[in-house]
């Protein structure tokens, strides 16, 4: 039973990891970010699941923000 749960949930973990990796790769190549500091964004996409990476990818990584 427990083994079954692990197998069923695994794809979710994989999806989350893919998101975090994409963020990490983008983050390491980017100097300036939109809205918050670099460290703040790192913490957000690493520790806030699902919504952290989405917020970073849609909002934080803008090329030329209108700040």
């Amino acid at each position: 039973m427990n083994k079954e749960i692990v197998l069923l949930v695994a794809p979710l973990v994989v999806l989350e990891l893919i998101l975090k990796l994409i963020c990490l790769r983008d983050w390491s190549q980017r100097e300036r970010m939109n809205g918050l500091s670099r460290t703040a964004w790192l913490l957000i996409f690493l520790f806030v699941n699902l919504f952290g990476p989405i917020a970073y990818l849609v909002y934080g990584r803008k090329y030329h923000g209108n700040d």
Binding site: P11, L12, L15, I18, L19, I22, L50, P53, I54, L57, V58
Partner: peptide, 12 residues
């Protein structure tokens, strides 16, 4: 990454 984000959310 707009499509990718949406695809992953839908996957979730």
């Amino acid at each position: 990454y707009k499509f990718l984000i949406w695809a992953i959310i839908c996957g979730f």
